[in-house]
Amino acid sequence: MQRAAVFDVDGTLVDTNHLHVVTWWEAFRQAGHDVPMHAVHRAVGLPSTDLIAHLLGDDRDTDRDAGLSAAHKALYGQYMDRLPALPGAGDLLRRLHRDGWTVVLATSASGAELGALRRAIDADDAITDIAGAEDVREGKPAPEPVELALELAGAPASQAVFVGDTVWDMRAGSAAGVRCLGVLCGGIPRADLAEAGAEAVYADPADLLGRLEGSPLA
């Protein structure tokens, strides 16, 4: 039976969360919205339209959503040629691949952004498939991205582990019925990840790799 190791990307394998915070904050500022950075940080990991709705509310002018997303994309694009992988990210994926896990990414990124993230991780030889933003109708915290990842891996939820850095990741994985592991490198507190469904929490991919034998990915 196939075993699936499903990974979020931003903040889990690549150190991008705070870049997203600053560029979303600037996109909101340019559009005349005063949104605190701490609030943006807590929303990172949601699909763009959901992030905007989460921060501005349902009574906003939704006709401006596309402009906000485009502004964020343009601002974030300045960094895409130098996105830094988190410590141990590529090594962890390659180790799991060697150990017989089917590695699939579940991310809200797509297009050029997804390509930049893959280049940063530099472990395409270990990645079997990707469930990207364009492949699902609902992003996290809905379970659909994780469920699609399992389908791509050919693995049941009972034989899968999902690794992520946000409460949205943990809620999506829990709703999909998989075991969830959290990492702190996205900046979300351990207690919040545990409350949202994380079975165990690690500092970053290198920490998980170093303690792999005692983890659900052993």
Rank of each mutant, 00 (worst) to 15 (best):
M1E: 06
A4F: 07
A5T: 06
V6R: 00
F7G: 05
D8L: 08
D10R: 00
V14Q: 10
H18F: 13
T23H: 12
W24T: 03
W24K: 03
W25Y: 14
E26F: 01
E26N: 10
F28C: 09
R29T: 15
G32H: 02
H33D: 06
D34N: 12
V35A: 08
P36L: 10
M37D: 09
H38K: 13
A39L: 13
A39F: 08
H41T: 02
G45R: 08
L46P: 09
S48T: 12
T49C: 00
L51R: 06
A53E: 13
L56S: 00
L56P: 04
D59C: 06
D61Y: 02
D61N: 11
A66P: 00
A66C: 00
S69W: 04
A71L: 14
K73G: 15
A74C: 01
Y76S: 07
Y76A: 14
G77T: 04
Q78N: 11
Y79N: 13
M80T: 15
P84N: 04
A85C: 11
A89F: 03
L93H: 05
R94G: 03
G100N: 06
W101L: 02
V103A: 00
V104F: 05
V104L: 03
L105Y: 02
A109C: 13
A109E: 06
S110Q: 15
G111W: 07
G115N: 14
A116F: 11
L117F: 10
R119T: 15
R119G: 15
A120G: 05
A120N: 08
A123W: 08
A123D: 09
D124E: 15
A126Y: 04
I127A: 08
G132Q: 13
A133M: 09
D135T: 11
V136T: 13
V136D: 06
R137I: 06
G139W: 00
P141M: 10
A142V: 03
E144M: 07
E144N: 04
E147T: 12
L148H: 00
L148Y: 02
A149V: 08
E151L: 08
E151A: 12
E151M: 03
S158D: 13
F162A: 09
F162N: 07
W168R: 05
A172E: 11
A172K: 09
A176L: 10
G177P: 10
V178I: 09
C180I: 12
V183D: 05
V183G: 02
L184I: 09
G186D: 06
G187L: 05
I188W: 10
P189G: 10
R190A: 13
A191V: 13
D192T: 11
A194P: 00
A198H: 12
V201F: 01
A203S: 12
D204G: 09
A206R: 14
L208T: 08
G210W: 02
R211Q: 13
S215I: 11
S215W: 11
L217Y: 09
A218T: 11
